[in-house]
Simulated scan of single mutants.
Amino acid sequence: MRRALLIAVAALGLIGPPVVAQEPPPAPDRPLPDGAQEARAQALFDGIRCVVCQHEAIADSPAVIAADMRQLVREQVAAGRSDAEIEQDLVRRYGDFVLFQPPVRSGTWLLWFGPVALLTGILALLLFRSRRPRTEIEPLTAVEEARLADIISEAHLRRDPDAKPSDD
């Protein structure tokens, strides 16, 4: 009995820490009192990527950091900063990745123009290959045609072992 109790306590000790170590739920969002400012903040939320979820905007993300980013954007909107200044501040903190549409600069050229360049290269290759002169296949000579007719007409040709009478 004592041993079973000791095993149960040890099992609870192994299960307990992961439950305690979970991330607490984010604090509920507090919208801005001014409706125009809140609408502007909501519009910004859709263009900012959650750095944890990576495929969701901070408007849709349940992560704590997304809630913190929403609060930060709301504070900056309330402080009167422009959309560009808010985005620059987020890029300074988290990098270009935080924006769903990163800026066009030398570090992002491949991201912006890579697909177009790849498609252009493939189309150029296809065009080049289609305009290349094709080699003409010469017709068989009379001697070659006679030899082919002899091969086809020979009776000792091995039949296809998988062939059925209906295939003839």
Rank of each mutant, 00 (worst) to 15 (best):
M1D: 04
M1C: 04
L5G: 03
A8E: 11
V9Q: 05
L12A: 07
L14S: 06
I15N: 02
I15G: 11
P17A: 11
V19G: 09
V20M: 11
P24Y: 07
A27R: 12
P28D: 00
D29L: 06
R30Q: 11
Q37K: 13
Q37N: 04
R40F: 06
R40M: 10
Q42C: 02
A43N: 15
D46C: 01
I48F: 07
R49T: 01
R49M: 05
C50L: 04
H55R: 14
A57S: 14
I58S: 00
D60W: 08
P62E: 13
A63E: 14
V64G: 04
A66G: 12
R70G: 02
L72E: 12
E75G: 15
E75V: 11
Q76F: 12
Q76I: 03
A78Y: 06
A78M: 06
A78C: 01
A79G: 13
A79C: 02
G80P: 04
R81T: 07
S82C: 03
A84Y: 00
I86Q: 03
I86S: 04
L90S: 00
R92A: 15
R93N: 07
Y94D: 02
F100M: 06
F100Q: 02
P102G: 05
P102I: 09
P103F: 02
S106E: 14
T108H: 02
W109E: 05
W109A: 06
L111A: 10
F113C: 09
F113G: 06
G121Y: 03
I122F: 13
I122W: 15
L123K: 07
R129E: 09
R132L: 14
P133I: 10
R134F: 02
I137G: 03
I137S: 07
P139M: 06
P139S: 06
A149K: 14
D150V: 09
E154P: 00
H156L: 09
L157G: 11
L157Y: 12
R158G: 01
R158C: 01
D168K: 12
